[in-house]
Structures are given as C-alpha cells and as structure tokens.
Amino acid sequence: MSRRPYVRRISTTTWYLKKKRDLVHMIQELTSLFVGIYGILLLWGVKALSEGPEAYGAFLEALTGPLSLAFHWVAFPLVLYHAISWFNVTHKAMPIQRGEEFLPGKYIVGAHYVVWIGFSLVVLFVAGVF
C-alpha cells in the first residue's frame, strides 16, 4: 500500500449535483414520492366510498381544498415525467432478441407509448371527460 493512498472525496449528500445525468436520475427517483402520496389519496377515497355517500361527498369536497389543488398541480407533471422516463428505458430492462439481432429499442419504447396513450384516452372517455 502506498503511503499516500489516493482518496477520491465524493460527497454522500450532493454527488448527484455534479453530473446532469445523475441529477436527472435523482429527480426520477423522487417523483415516486408523488406516486406514493397519490396511492394514499386513492386509499382515502376508497375508505370514504366504503362509508357511504355522505363520506364520499366529503372526500370530493376535500379534494377541492387548496392543499389538494397544489398537490395535483405539482404531482401531475411529475407523474408524467415518471411515466415517460420509465417507458424510455423499457428496451434496456427487457430487450427482445430476434435471431442474432435485438429488436431496435424505439419499437419497444414506442409500443409502450402507444398503449399508454390509448389506455389513457379510453379511461378519459369511459370516465366521461369527453
């Protein structure tokens, strides 16, 4: 061992600020907070629904509060970002091999986008948005 070992000093709390790629990944990971909070919001809605029309009405009323409105406006772009960044790496997570070649990533990612957009439009239509 050398007398002066080379020690790279890497901050354990701010390392991701140095490279754009790391920062983008950190933001992607933090979007999951909003997915989780939204899961709890859905759970709250299901609880209200199980208690009957009055409780459910109070839930819908609570959704119109300023905290809920602020949450939705922050969460909406972040969950969109979660979806887009998730789909964009699907060809890395599950490559499809055809003979010697791998199916180009754009087809796998593209298929996810097509299904995502189609599904979202169906939900909006069934929900009576349009």
């Binding site: 997915v35 909406f76 969950v79 979806a83 995502w116 599904f119």
Partner: peptide
Amino acid sequence: TAFVTPVLVY
C-alpha cells in the same frame, strides 16, 4: 403506475 397514474391524477 407509469400507465395509470398520470390519467388518474388528471
């Protein structure tokens, strides 16, 4: 959640 959460939040 990538498929369903955005439309549900909307």
